[in-house]
Nucleic acid binder design. Structure first.
Lengths: 148, 148
DNA sequence: GTCGAAGTTTGGATTAAGTCTAAAGTCGAA
DNA sequence: TTCGACTTTAGACTTAATCCAAACTTCGAC
C-alpha cells in the first residue's frame, strides 16, 4: 500500500479508508478504461467483502474530486480514465477496447475560435481496427461488442 | 404522409408500416438528437397506441439499415441522429443538448495516417457553453442535465 | 375472395447499470 | 470512553433497454 496513494487521496480532500485505497490503487494506475463493474470485480480479488455500492460511491467521489474522468463513448459502457491531461480516444470496433492517444497525435484546428460556442474541452473520438496488437489480451477484455 | 418516406424505407429494404412511417417521419427529419423515449413520446402524440417495443425495434432497424446513426456521447443518453454525412458534435454543458457542427467547421489533422490504427470514422466531440442562443427552446428540450 | 406463411406489433416480464436507503461499523478528537 | 461524523453494506428501487409469446397485418398463391 504505497503511501503515495494515501497522500494523493489526502491532497484531493478525500479521507482514506481501506476500500478507497484498494479502489484507488487499481483505478488510478490502469489504462484499461474499466467500467464500474470491472473495477468491482478486480478489486474484489483482493478484498472480497467489498460491496457494489462502495465502488460506485468511491468512483463518483474520485470523479467529483478530479482524480478520475468519466467517459461515455460506446454503447452501454460508462468507463473511468485516470489520465487527466487532454488526450484523444480510439475505440476498437471488434473488442470495444478504448485506447488513449496522446494529444499531439492528432492536430485539431481552431476549435476555440468557433463563433457562438465557448468550448471548455474537446477530443477526437476515432473508431476502427487496431492493427497488429491482437495478442495483447491481458485482462477481462472489454466486453466484445455485447449485443445486450 | 409523403410518399418520399415510403420510398426511402423501401429503398433501404424496409417494409413500410404505419408505425414505421410515423417514426421515420419524425426521427429522420429532426436535428434534435432524440433518445428512444423522446421519440416514443413525440410519435405517440399522433399515434397513441404505439408501443415502446415498436419504437426500439424500429430505431434499431433503421440503424441497422443505415438510415440513422446511434450516438452515445453523454451520461445515460443514447441518442439518434439522421444526419449521415461525417460531422462533429457539440454538447451543451447546461442543457445536455447536442448540436451538429459541419465537417468543415473543424479541421482535423492526418488521422488516417496514424501508425497501428485503421481509422474507419472519427469526429470531434466538444463540450462547453452555447452562447446567445438561449431563446431556442422549441421542443421537449433534452433533459436538463438530469442527475439520475 | 380466402388461406396460410411471413412479417409486424404489442403489453408485460426480464435484465442490467446505477442509485438510494437505513442500519451497522469505524475513526478520531475531546 | 464516548460522541458525532463519516464510511460501508446489503438489499430495495429506478430506469433504459431487451426479450417473449400471443395477437394482428400483409400479401401472394390459389
Amino acid at each position: 500500500m504505497s503511501p503515495d496513494v494515501v497522500n494523493l487521496l489526502r491532497t484531493a480532500g478525500i479521507q482514506p479508508s481501506a476500500q478507497r485505497l484498494a479502489v484507488a490503487q487499481y483505478v488510478l494506475t490502469t489504462d484499461a478504461h474499466p467500467s464500474a463493474d470491472e473495477v468491482l470485480e478486480c478489486v474484489q480479488a483482493t478484498m472480497p467483502m467489498l460491496s457494489r455500492a462502495t465502488v460506485y460511491n468511491t468512483l463518483n467521489l474520485f470523479v467529483e474530486k478530479g482524480l478520475l474522468r468519466q467517459l461515455v463513448l460506446a454503447e452501454g459502457r460508462t468507463v473511468f480514465d485516470p489520465k487527466l491531461e487532454a488526450h484523444h480516444h480510439f475505440i476498437d470496433d471488434e473488442s470495444g477496447r478504448i485506447e488513449d492517444l496522446p494529444w499531439e497525435a492528432v492536430k485539431v484546428g481552431d476549435v476555440r475560435g468557433l463563433k457562438g460556442y465557448e468550448v471548455r474541452e474537446y477530443m477526437v473520438v476515432m473508431r476502427g481496427r487496431k492493427l497488429g496488437g491482437s495478442r495483447m489480451q491481458a485482462r477481462p477484455a472489454a466486453a466484445p461488442v455485447k449485443k445486450r
